[in-house]
Each structure stands twice: as C-alpha cells, then as structure tokens.
C-alpha cells in the first residue's frame, strides 16, 4: 500500500471514529437536555412543595408533587443498599480469605452471573413469595426486590475494593497477631475505605434507578406520604414509568419533573465519588 493511500485511509478511519463517538454521545446529551428542559418548569413553579405535595389526580389543576415517591425511594433504596453492601462485604472477604478454595471460586462465578438476571423476574419472584405471604405489595417487599437486584453491583464494586488491598498489609497484620476478624476491620475496610465508600454510593445509585423490581412489589401509594414499611408505598422511578404511560398532561409534567429530580438525586453521589477518587489520586 502506498504512503498516500495509507494516509488517506488513516484520515478516513479517524474521521469515522470521531463521528461515531460524537454520534454516540449526542443522544445522551440530548436526553439530559430534554430532561432539563421539560423537568425544570414544574420544579421551578412548585419549588420545595414538589417534594412535599401528593401526586395529582387526573382532574387536578395543580400538578402536585412526588412526596410519597421520594420517601419510598429513599427508604427502600437505603435498606436495599445497606443489606446488599453487608452481604457483598462478607462474601468478598470470605472469597478473599479463602481465595484458593473451590467453594469461593464457585461463589464468585455464581454471583457474577447474577448480573444476568432480568430484574422483572426478580419482581415476579418477590411477588409470588413475599407479597403473597405478607398480604399486599409493600415497602419491605420492594426493598427485598431491590436488594436482590443490586446484589451483583454491590458485589462487583466491593470485591474489587477489597481486592485492591495488597497481600502484605494482610500478612503484616496477621503476623502481628491480629485475629482474622480484626484483620477484616482494620486492614480491609481501613485501607480500602475510599473504594468501599464509592461502592456503597454506586450501589445506592443503582437501587434508586431501578424500576422493574418495584413494579409488582411496591404498590402505588398516592394519598399519603408514608404508611409504614408493611404497607404500600411508591417510588420515583415507578411513578415516572406509570405516569409516562398516561394521557394526562399534568401527569406528564410530574413525570418530567420527577425525572429531573431523579437525575439530581443520582448525580450527587456520582460527584461525591469523584471527590473521593480525586483524593485517592493525590
């Protein structure tokens, strides 16, 4: 191939790559723009009452707010994140400590494959077990469904957090006479503190954004902000989904406002993680 031909092909390939890259990022930016443009007016109009008011009914003139959804999301996501993180830390510690045993390899492979469970199936499962047993869709059932859904995420981040702790710290601690359980606390969680915190936040973000696990398990509470863990609740992602399928313009407005709020709710931890990571680099 002649030099000039290679040059030409080179330029072409680079042009294609740039074009595709831009093409890829374009819809993502468009999405952010749409959410901001459609979501800002209701947030500005209602201000704080958007998160303290109840959702509208089809005949409402006021667009109302998403109070039950916000509370439901925060509570169910927090419970799910907490339990998922604890479970993930324990599993990761176990597989790390017994890295070469067969059971740990099996656990690793299985939990990793977990990533492949469609979350709607998690919802079906929790409905047929927890909801039918408890008598109605409720916040606890929703939290359990979320827990199962974010378990792979928690495991992914936390196991890589713990894996980053070098052997020598562990060996040093053990040789100093630390008991294994203390090695856990001071070495792993201590040295990997930042990554563990990041992992917790990433898991929380996942939990907040999930919709399918909540479809059959949360119910749809609109006439009260919170009725208890064993009663129906609501969630922001669920509300957006249901209202997006409706024909009422006030519902659509609420959905966009909620979407923008969800975006903000998700971006805060992301920025926090940036701070954590930046500190780590220094």
């Amino acid at each position: 191939m002649g030099r000039s031909t290679r040059k030409a092909i080179n330029l072409l390939v680079i042009a294609v790559i740039v074009a595709l890259g831009v093409l890829g990022l374009l819809p993502l930016i468009w999405l952010l723009y749409s959410t901001a443009v459609n979501g800002l007016p209701p947030l500005l109009e209602k201000g704080l009452s958007f998160i303290t008011d109840l959702p509208p009914t089809p005949m409402s003139t006021d667009i109302g707010g998403i109070a039950p959804a916000l509370v439901g999301t925060l509570i169910s996501s927090s419970i799910a994140t907490l339990l998922a993180v604890v479970s993930a830390v324990i599993s990761s510690l176990f597989t790390r400590e017994y890295m070469y045993s067969r059971i740990s390899g099996f656990i690793e492979a299985v939990v990793r494959s977990f990533n492949g469970i469609p979350t709607i199936i998690v919802s079906m499962y929790v409905y047929t077990t927890v909801v039918l047993w408890m008598g109605e869709p409720n916040v606890v059932a929703a939290s359990i469904a979320l827990l199962i859904a974010v378990l792979p995420t928690a495991h992914y981040y936390l196991s890589s957090a713990l894996r980053s702790v070098e052997e020598r710290y562990r060996e040093a601690a053990l040789s100093l006479g630390f008991r294994r359980i203390h090695v856990l606390r001071y070495v792993y969680l201590g040295v990997a503190r930042r990554q563990v915190a990041s992992g917790i936040l990433m898991t929380f973000i996942r939990a907040v954004g999930e919709t399918a696990p909540l479809l059959f398990t949360m119910g749809f509470l609109t006439n009260s902000v919170f009725q208890g863990l064993n009663r129906p609740g609501n969630a922001i992602s669920l509300l957006i989904f249901i209202y997006a399928l409706s024909p009422y313009t006030n519902y659509h407005t609420v959905a966009w406002g909620a979407a923008l709020l969800l975006l903000i709710l998700v971006l805060i931890p992301v920025l926090l993680i940036e701070v954590l990571v930046k500190e780590a680099r220094k």
Partner: peptide, 30 residues
Amino acid sequence: TQKKVIVAVVALAVAIALTSYYLIQGPGRS
C-alpha cells in the same frame, strides 16, 4: 483525606435521614 471521606458519607446519610423524617412528619402536607 480520610476525614473528608467520612464527612461526605456521613453527610449523605444524615441528609437522607433528615429528608425522610421531615417528609414523614411533614408540615401538615400529608
């Protein structure tokens, strides 16, 4: 650095707890 990390995580947790509490008690909105 570690202090900052702890502060950040604690701040987030407190924010969540406060918001939930505020919403549950609510200024007569519920």
